[in-house]
Amino acid sequence: MRDGALAFVAGMIRGIGHRVNDALQTLGFAARFFMMILVYSGQSFRRLHLTLREIYFSGFQSLLIILVSGLFIGMVLGMQGYETLQRYGSSEALGVLVALSLTRELGPVVSALLFASRAGSSITAEIGLMKATEQLTAMDMMAVNPIARVVAPRFWGGVLSMPLLAALFSAIGVFGGYLVGVVLIGVDQGAFWSQMQGSVDFELDVLNGIIKSFVFGVAVSLIAVFEGYDAVPTAEGVSSSIKRTVVYSALAILALDLVLTSFMFRGI
């Protein structure tokens, strides 16, 4: 009886140790993998059309969902912002509210979340299936480096697309806010734009938003290619890799957003 209890406790401790060990090992592999991508990037840029192809697949094909979501979010911001601002008699500040919340936060964050679920998951599925069907091993056998040929182009395609998508999201969102605020509700057009231009700073707001989306792009793309490369090569393993891509990307985006925001907008 005593031996049984002791063995149970020992087993539990071993289980915790095993998990921590696994997590650390995965983290170490992810770091090494990131370095490998950077090292082999030069080799993959020599065949630039590979990266261009990935920009097409993850950037261009995400345009529709980004634009439509941005328009809707801008319109909702316009309605909600007007509802709150008109209580204080300052509905002309609607442009400021819409533009600041989009360029600083919503543009980079929401477009990165959409990008993770639209493009990140498909990258993971693609690489995971390539691994499951032993295409990556076959490439290795033919002396083609799978990281330079498959992984790095997908990584850079995501990293380069993300800031452009976020900027498009913010721009179309501002337009959506304009549609609801000025065209539908009837806020004064001059005040809407001029107050916006007076309060939105290019460096502080727009540029910081672009920097944010670039960081999110690196995080999402890295998670997506890593989860695909690290997938257990079975149908079940690939499916749980895709799930992890979406979950980890969302968590990474929101956590990084907190860190970046606290660096960028301290007390101003």
Binding site: A99, T103, L164, A167, L168, S170, A171, I172, V174, W193, M196, Q197, G198, V200, D201, F202, D205, V206, I210
Partner: peptide, 11 residues
């Protein structure tokens, strides 16, 4: 879009 944000939104 970046140009729009810089010139029209951010002035």
């Amino acid at each position: 879009a970046i140009l729009f944000l810089a010139l029209r939104v951010g002035n």
